[in-house]
Design a protein around this nucleic acid. Structure first.
Lengths: 380, 380
DNA sequence: TTGAAAGCGCTAACAT
DNA sequence: ATGTTAGCGCTTTCAA
């Protein structure tokens, strides 16, 4: 695998030369035209004589000229750049959103800057400042929490359109794309109740986070509707992280037998993984000893373990719709030839999540067969 | 959950007013100083009289002034922006890399633009052009394939430093951060051979992709070293995607009994998931009927299913090291007060992956218990 | 310590 | 169809 460089045209690295940009002037000189003509070839090719155009295009190619977008942006006041600020880039939910945003943006000639606030309002603030400095045209943001308001107000003040993803914030006049956290939470809880569970624990994230609050609400409402008493010791707050789930599960397992839950509702995918880990470590069998359901999908895991019931959200769609909202504000022509200055009122879209119950009789038999044979010939 | 807006200071949306930028001039006027003074307050606060500075700072705050980075960049020729172009943002491997890059960049005052080439050289080309237009200072790229060369040559020509991540490309004079795909592949294959397997299938990605080529090589070399005959029908090429894995597994299952593999080596995490799905669908028990190992980690899944042996790569480190390489080229001062113009030769780092065998006797017993009880009381 | 002038690379608005 | 002028918002000289 030793690769001798047999290539002849390998360019040399000239780190020493002053990295002078190839400008439009250079191209103009090379093609014996004015800078304006080059500019026109770039922006309105039809308005340049074919012969001239060809000459200019060749010069561009020969010089490897790539127009400086900064200069254009400075002049036009538009950067054709969007930004997506999420609270956890490691979460597949946000990754999917990113795909959706990137897709729509790319198709419309926009570039996307991704940022990761790590659930920290401070980091979020830093990012926003950098992004505003870069004069992004619009922002999609999954706010770290209610502490994000001041920054959002600044955006409003500056007139930079933005879209709230996944988490709404009270009183912020912006488009919102969220999931039905209360409804999804209700369905998940009802699913458990329908299976006969009464002592259902909720392993939740930070109650400051809107989604966590709503998931808790759906859980509580459903218990109440079914006349099941809410038990404080079965509700554990934390953060949307694996270790938080592990800790919560341990705490639940430490309860006296009579109080221990028969089912655990993990309010988030990471929490669920943590919970499952802790349960296995404690030799607790899912779902025999304790059942587990979770809000958010764990796509890959679910493919490997059919015993996980999840509430899956159409994450990618969060991104595409959010990006479309933004683009409609940026280019009114896109919003279906709308009125001239019809300032669209903030929109709010609630995307319904989907309950995915993968377990089936067949799967169970499969699992049974699997483990029975397991001890005979381990081969992994 | 109906949120009446009780807030009084909610700013109105003024989409109609011309969104005139607050400029340095505005601040200067407000503070009764020249633009230069404001500029200095921003860049070299120490060189401004405290009294003046305070006045300026207040004006900045009052006007909500955020300096236009575009103008500064245009002037200075440096954007303090890096770009990360990966081939699949949905892959946790690249997500982890992104975290690493973002981390280092942020800490050094750089912004990162993420791009997703979707394994398409054409999309990659479009992105690169947009990025060059934006005058990024440096690029980290997991090239889509050997077809990426022309673009990389352009980067070399322009003198924009870049780092190749995960995939090296012959004859491109740039820093490289890759994993030991051959070595990792060998270990994985040896693991299977050690367990007694002889008919080991390889479910691989596109042979055009360097990592796929290397993983194949490690597999082949190991078979040869152990005197095991390579069987063409057991080597299936495809792409690094779940459905490709599913298809490959089906194909393998369709082989006559005598030829069917006893173990499958999935060359990538997504392929592995597809393979596992297909096997379960066919009532094939892992690892009794067929063992499965895979290159790349499937972190979450592994937490749920201990029967998966994987070759995990330190993805995040790929990102941090890559970003550091870039920054060292951009700001020589970072590279340990190196010589003035010591043009560092291209560096090549090979990060060793780690074999993770999670299955244990305890886990097996756990699984056994689990399924035995399963049919009695399903509760998920 | 502060200011005036010039210009980064590009394009809108006028010429021609 | 092509060219000229001016200036986007900022910072680098050079002066005061």
């Amino acid at each position: 695998m030793l690769n001798l460089n047999l290539d002849c045209d390998t360019h040399n690295i000239r780190m020493d030369e002053t990295p002078t940009d190839v400008t439009i002037q250079d191209v103009a000189a090379r093609a014996s035209v004015s800078a304006m003509t080059v500019s026109r070839v770039l922006n309105q090719p039809a308005r340049v004589a074919p012969a001239t155009r060809q000459r200019v295009e060749q010069a561009i190619r020969e010089l490897g000229f790539v127009p400086n977008a900064l200069a254009r942006q400075l002049l036009r006041g538009r950067t054709h750049t969007l930004a997506l600020l999420v609270s956890d880039i490691g979460n597949p939910f946000f990754t999917q959103i990113a795909r959706g945003v990137e897709d729509v943006a790319q198709r419309n000639g926009y570039t996307v800057i991704f940022g990761n606030s790590d659930e920290s309002v401070e980091k979020e603030r830093q990012y926003l400042h950098a992004l505003l400095g870069r004069r992004i045209d619009g922002l999609l943001i999954a706010p770290a929490g209610n502490g994000s308001r001041p920054m959002l107000d600044l955006l409003v003040q500056r007139g930079t359109p933005f879209v709230l993803l996944d988490r709404a914030i009270d009183g912020v006049p912006a488009d919102v794309v969220i999931g039905d956290n209360i409804g999804g939470s209700r369905k998940l809880t009802e699913h458990l109740i329908g299976l006969g569970h009464r002592r259902i624990a909720l392993v939740n994230g930070d109650p400051e986070v809107p989604t966590a609050r709503d998931r808790r609400r759906g859980y509580l409402d459903t218990l109440r509707d079914h006349g099941i008493e809410m038990r404080p010791e079965l509700i554990i707050d934390g953060v949307y992280r694996r270790d938080s789930g592990t800790r919560a599960a341990r705490q639940l397992l430490a309860l006296p037998d009579a109080q221990r839950p028969t089912a655990i509702f993990a309010a988030n995918n990471f929490l669920a993984v943590g919970v499952i880990e802790a349960l296995r470590a404690a030799q607790v069998i899912i779902p025999r000893d304790i059942a587990v359901v979770c809000f958010d999908d764990i796509e890959i895991a679910a493919a490997l373990d059919p015993f996980l019931t999840v509430m899956a959200q159409p994450a990618r769609t969060f991104g595409t719709i959010g990006a479309q909202f933004l683009l409609e504000r940026l280019e009114p022509s896109l919003s279906g030839a709308a009125g001239p200055r019809a300032a669209v009122a903030p929109r709010r879209v609630v995307l319904p999540p989907e309950l995915i119950v993968r377990v089936s009789c067949g799967a169970q038999l499969d699992m049974a067969r699997r483990s029975v044979e397991l001890l005979e010939q381990p081969g992994n």
